[in-house]
Every structure is written in C-alpha cells, then in structure tokens.
Design a protein around this nucleic acid. Structure first.
Lengths: 224, 224
DNA sequence: CCGGCCGGCATTGCTAACAATCTGATTACT
DNA sequence: AGTAATCAGATTGTTAGCAATGCCGGCCGG
C-alpha cells in the first residue's frame, strides 16, 4: 500500500515512512558509502528527502547512534560517525574472537552436504587466485565467512558480527584492493575450511582467529 | 492513573527528562530487576512515572530495543524482553570469546602494579572460599572480570560485553546462588590470573574461554 | 586594527493534539 | 447455546507547531 516511488534509489513515497524502515534505509545508505563519514545529518533535510516525518527521523537517528553508525551531540545534531584506524583494528580483533567462536561451533555441527559446499568454495577460491580474478575471490571470501556463521547457528554472535561489520566496512573495502593480499589469505582460508570440515573445533577456531588477526595487522599497518 | 510519584526513588525532577537520561534510568531499572521480563511498558505510564514526555519515552524505548533489553511489536507496544535459556547460553558463549580476547590483550599489556593487584584478588578469592563467604567471593569475581577487561584496553570488546551482560544478568544472578559453584570456579579463576600475570597470552585467552564455557554449561543444564 | 558583546538564523529538543490500530467484550443471529 | 459481527476503550503511531540552544556575522569599544 505504499512506495509509489518509481524513482530508482530511495526516496519519497507518497505515504510516510515508519521509523524502522527509515532506519533501515539510512543504514544501507551509510554502509554503502552514499553518506560519507562526518557528513551532517540534518533532521529536516532527511525528513524531506526520505518523505518521513521529523519525529521518525529522530527515532531512526537514535537507533543508528546506538548501533554506532551515527554520532550525536547535544543540540548540535547528528553526523555519520568516522571510525578511526584504531577502532577498525579493535573491531577486527573482536570479529576474530567472534568468528573464531562461530568456526568452532560450525566444526561441531557441520553436516555432509555443508562440507561439500565449503569444499566447493575452496576450489573456487583457488581458481580465482590462479586466474588472478580478484573480484571472484572477494566474493567467495565473503561467502565463506557468511556460510560458516550460518552453519554455526550462533545468532547472538551473528548479530554482533554484522553490527560491527557495518562500522568497519570502509576498511574492508580498502583491504580488498591490496595487491598481494589473496596470496596471503588463501592458505589461511583453506586451513579454516579443512579444520571445519574435519570437525576439529579447536583448530577451526584458532585458524579463523589467526586469519582475522592477520587482517587486523594489515589494517594496523595501513595507516600510521 | 497510578503512581503520582512522590515516592522516594528515582523519578521526577521538576524539569522534564531528556531521552538519553530516560534511557539510562530505564536500563538500570530493567537490569536491576525492578522491571520484570514480559512486563508491559506503556508509553503514557512511563512518561507520567518518570516525568518525561511521551516522545522521549518513545525514543528511549527504541534505543533499548536496539540494545536488546526491550522488545517492540508494531502497534502493540513494548515489553521487557525475556531472554530464554538458549539465548543466555549463546550470550555466555559470546562472552567467553570476547573475554578470552580481553584476557589475551591483558596478558600482553599488564604492568607490575596491576599484577600485584590481580594477585591480591587471588588471595581474596581463596580466603572467601575457605571462609565459605559467598558474598565476598562473588564480589571478587566481578572485580576480577572487570579488571581484566579494563587492563585489556579493548573498548569495543568492553562495550559489547557490557551490553550482553545486561541481557543475561538474571542468569548470572541465579548462578551465584549455586551451592558448589565457587569450588569449581576458583581454580579456573586462579589459572586465569596466573596466565595473565605470566604474560602468557594464549594460555590466558584459553583459560578465560574455558572458564566461561563452563559457566555456559551450567546455564545449559540449569533448566531443561 | 583588533577583540569582545549582541542579535539573527539555522537546527535541535520538546509538547500536545490527532489519527490509526489493536484488544476484549457485548450483542445479535443461527 | 454457540459463533460471528460490532463497538468501546486503551494504546500506539504520526504530525505540526513552539521553545531552547548553538553558531555566525556585524557592531561597538579599546
């Protein structure tokens, strides 16, 4: 009953937007980079652009501020939060611990068809590196992490990881562009897959942790 | 309609309350158990009780809902979220991973005076167990976890742990009442302290993880 | 020429009223 | 008597407007 919006992109259905919908749209706009860090988020402007009332904009900004995507200061409005390199490192360290947990649980719970699936991902990654296909490798990389999290069936960890990834997405992006990166991470990914498929929980957790800690090291070194 | 509230306790300065202050008060009310799980949170009632406007109540509830303390359903209002045993187990598992990370970093960064501090905590815990002083033991327990998190200087992990603890606080409480519990957890705590003070990062992380996983096991077994 | 007060503008914070929706019970009909 | 339609009360969702606050530029005094 809503969203007349034939404009591709976001805005301005005729009918007003609920606070949750608005929060969702703003979230994707921020993580996609459409709204850049430190950009001011003026309530009235957002209300006009997205066709929502200011009250809803206010609620949405509050929620995003709790999620860490937006920074609010009293009487001075909201802006897109800029995460520092130090914070990105911390976030990646936390992800290392959390995805390590997921790898552990995945190793305990994985079924035969899922093992086949992961091993096919391993093949795809090797091929991509052989062909120098960075795009394809990055895709498989994301798929691997997502699958392991899904297999772990640890929803609390999954939710936390997703929230943190939203904050650090800019750095993930930079990382994918590093030239020699796939050659370094491929063996780590293969080790993770091997351990999970072998039901070796400890090894899986450790392999995943080491992998993401190495990502943290790269971020640490990326800027001074 | 109720509680004209000149009751001593939290509320109602003359001036109305900002949304953030209100969220803070509601948060403590929930984690302290003043507001019980599944209790309805009617916007108008809260506004009257805390002397805030309904708009602020609404914003505060949205924030708490993002934090996972409150559950909101469309057009049906908000209530204090009841976390299931399964969720409490998941939360404890995540804490195991995160506090493991903190223990690791603490072991890397700990200084001499901090080592002395932790070792004094170890003495206090042993004494408390010897004397059967459950209260004192529980206190030292909390202090230990807090100190290690502080020493780690991992703010992202610290914030995440705190948020999760807020959700599972009810189960923590139950746990402290278990009769034979201190005898089991004391050696685990001592192992953590030893590893951290010895700058053995791997051992510290593993000891902390094992400790909290054992807590998760107790919760798992607590109810069917 | 420079530095501190002052007033207007932009923006947020807040309030009160209105509209939409849900719940539960009463009533009418088979 | 049982079931379905309906209506009243309560509660949430939304909107518009008002008050408060901070920022910026001009004006006055030194």
């Amino acid at each position: 009953m809503e969203t007349l919006d034939q404009v591709p992109g976001r805005q301005t259905a005729e009918r007003s937007m609920t606070a949750t919908e608005l929060a969702e749209q703003l979230r994707t706009a921020i993580v996609s980079g459409e709204l850049v860090p430190n950009q001011r988020l003026v309530e009235a402007d957002l209300a006009a652009e997205y066709g929502a009332s200011r009250g809803n904009v206010r609620v949405a900004l509050s929620e995003l501020s709790v999620e860490g995507l937006v920074e609010r200061v009293q009487n001075r409005g909201a802006r897109v939060r800029a995460v520092s390199v130090d914070e990105a490192v911390e976030i990646t360290e936390v992800r290392a611990a959390l995805e390590g947990l997921c790898a552990r649980k995945a190793a305990e719970r994985i079924t035969e068809p899922e093992i086949a699936e992961l091993q096919e991902l391993a093949v795809r990654m090797k091929d991509a590196v052989d062909r120098g296909d960075r795009e394809s490798y990055s895709e498989a990389n994301q798929a691997l992490h997502a699958r392991i999290i899904a297999i772990s069936a640890q929803q609390t960890a999954a939710a936390t990881i997703q929230r943190l990834r939203g904050q650090a997405v800019r750095f993930q992006f930079r990382l994918a562009r590093q030239p020699g990166r796939p050659a370094v991470s491929l063996p780590q990914h293969l080790a993770i897959i091997d351990a999970v498929c072998a039901h070796d929980a400890d090894a899986a957790a450790e392999a995943m942790r080491v992998h993401l800690e190495s990502v943290a090291d790269v971020i640490r070194a990326s800027n001074t």
